[in-house]
């Protein structure tokens, strides 16, 4: 999803492979991280952590996130969070949709608002009563 957006709109910002940011990144527009970021990110836009890119944060708030590199920290996305086969994400995750490719690494809690099919809802309800 983020890759498709990039192909269409491009990114407004990029932290290059040889660049290290220590601090807070905020704002709007798509951001590609190929280098290292130590600090929180709050972005009205999509965040792409490319293969080789790394973010260590307490919290990340973005509209969409694609992890092809490494992310440590709790992530909240309004839209989609995807972890590619090369990607690693350690932290709690809350988003509308979540997906990970085979080979992806994920450690943490997943909190998504999605509706269970009716038969599963009954099972969940039965589980609670017990």
């Amino acid at each position: 999803m983020v890759r498709a957006q990039r192909a269409k709109d491009g990114a407004t910002g990029r932290i290059g492979a040889g660049t290290r940011v220590r601090g807070r990144i905020a704002g709007e527009g798509g951001l590609d991280v190929e280098g290292h970021v130590e600090g929180d990110v709050s972005l009205e836009g999509s965040l792409l952590v490319a293969d080789g890119g790394e973010i260590s944060a307490t919290s990340l708030e973005v509209s969409d996130l694609l992890v092809e590199g490494t992310v440590r920290g709790d992530v909240r996305a309004q839209g989609d969070i995807s972890i590619a086969s090369t990607g690693s994400l350690v932290g709690s995750v809350k988003s509308a949709t979540f997906s990970m490719e085979e080979g992806a690494h994920f450690e943490g809690d997943l909190d998504n608002d999605f509706e269970l099919p009716a038969e599963l809802l009954e099972l969940a309800g039965a589980g609670k009563r017990r």
Binding site: G13, T19, R20, V21, R24, I25, A26, G29
Partner: peptide, 13 residues
């Protein structure tokens, strides 16, 4: 590295 028009970085680059 490009820090786009809508982006603010507080810290060290």
């Amino acid at each position: 590295t490009i820090i786009g028009p809508g982006i603010t970085i507080e810290g060290e680059v």
